[in-house]
Structures are given as structure tokens and as C-alpha cells.
Simulated scan of single mutants.
Amino acid sequence: MADVNPGPRRRGRPRKDSSSDARTAIADAASAEFAEKGYDKTSIRGIARRAQVDSALVHHYFESKAGLFAEVVKLPVRPDRIVRSALDTDDDRLGESLVRTVLSAWERSTVKSIGVTVLRSAVSDSAAGRLIRQFLLRELKGAVAGRLESSGVDPAEADVRATLVLTQMAGALIFRHVLELEPLASMPVDDLIARLAPAVQCHIDGVGDVE
């Protein structure tokens, strides 16, 4: 009896027995795309093309480019989700919400262990460092800037304020968890939040801007 040709494989959601292979293929394709093009220039469509699947399948498994990056880099948490969850508050509480959400997440041992490695890579001049910086700027700074724009802040000014917010919090994380500088390293997290939040709120409000 002659073999039956099933015809070309249809794109879209895979059968149950092929789902694991499809997910792996997408993750491998994403890793290659990020390495070759960097975070900013990598697209979901390009990843899907390399993995030979439909772009809808990429979204089905990983939701977004940020989700794929988190999978490839093996992040224990999604920093983009952490920051976005902190943005859902009133303008005058935004600084405290951001600082508390981010710093509290870093107190978890599972986050800190790999977070230190990520921060060290981010400040290095390696290919991995450049990739991580692109991710942080696009997903974290972009989220804060977008939130400020939604409150009526000019886009250029929102970008400046978001950059200052990010540098303020990144500096605190680096000195506390990477360099372990005292007294910051052993300061109770609630005390650090209380001291840092007003400074971040000043950047959010644009205090000191030249009119």
C-alpha cells in the first residue's frame, strides 16, 4: 500500500504531540535573532520566519518579545511586568509604587541570584550586556515614559524623566546587591524605600525642570 502524503504542514497552533518541539524551535530562533540583531531590531515576525511557524504561534506561547527574551535569558521574573504593575496608580504615588514594587521584588532570593548577574552583564561591554541594556531601555524606560505621556507630559520630557527614574533605581540596586556598599547593603528595605521614593517622585514630577 502506497504511503499517503499528508500534504504541507499547516501553520498555527500545533498538535499536542508537536507543541514541545514548536516551543523549542521558537525559543532557539529567538536566541539566534537576538544574538544577530539585538533586542530593538528583533521582531516577532522575524523569529516566526526563522522558526518556520506563524507569528500567532509565537504570541500563543510567549505573549510578546519581552516574554521571549525572558525565556532566552532565563529570567526568574518578568521585570517588564513588575514595572508595569507598579504604574497602575495615581500620579502622586507613582514614585513610591515603582520603588516599593521593584526593590521588594529584589529581596526575594530567587530574583536576586540571577538579577545580580543580569545587572553585571548590563554594565559590561559584552554582546550580552548590550542586549540586556536594549531590553531594559525598551521595556522598562519605555513603560515609564508611556505612563508619563498618558498624563500629559511632552514625549521628549517624558523620556528624560523616565531615564532619571530608571538610573535612580538601577543605581540603588547595583550599590545594594552588586557592590554591596554599606550602609545601603544592610539597610532594611522599608527604610530604603522611604528614602528613595521621594527622589524618584521628584523625577516623575519634573521638579527642577527649567521652564
Results as ranks from 00 to 15, higher is better:
D3C: 05
R15I: 04
D17Q: 14
S19F: 04
S19E: 15
D21I: 13
R23G: 05
I26K: 05
A29F: 00
A30P: 09
S31I: 01
A32C: 02
A32M: 00
E33N: 01
F34T: 02
F34K: 00
F34M: 02
T42I: 00
S43L: 03
R45I: 05
G46Q: 03
A48P: 01
A51L: 08
Q52V: 05
V53M: 04
D54G: 15
S55L: 02
S55D: 15
A56L: 03
L57R: 07
H59Q: 14
Y61P: 11
K65E: 08
V72G: 10
L75M: 15
P76S: 05
P76R: 00
R78M: 08
P79Q: 00
D80V: 06
I82S: 08
V83N: 01
D88F: 06
D91I: 06
D91W: 09
L94E: 05
G95L: 08
G95V: 04
S97Y: 04
R100W: 02
R100G: 07
T101R: 15
V102A: 02
R108F: 09
R108S: 11
K112V: 14
G115N: 03
G115Q: 00
T117Q: 13
T117A: 15
L119E: 07
A122N: 02
V123C: 01
S124E: 13
G129D: 10
G129P: 09
R130L: 07
L131E: 01
E139Y: 13
G142C: 07
V144A: 10
S150M: 03
G152Y: 04
V153P: 02
A156L: 11
E157V: 14
D159W: 04
L166Q: 12
L166T: 12
T167E: 09
M169P: 03
A170N: 12
G171W: 05
L173F: 08
V178I: 11
L179W: 10
L181N: 12
P183H: 12
P183S: 14
L184S: 11
M187A: 12
D190Q: 15
D190N: 15
D191T: 11
D191W: 04
L192E: 07
L192R: 07
I193M: 10
I193T: 12
A194P: 08
A194G: 06
L196C: 03
A197C: 11
P198R: 08
A199M: 10
V200A: 15
C202F: 10
I204T: 06
D205K: 15
G206E: 07
V207Y: 13
V210S: 05
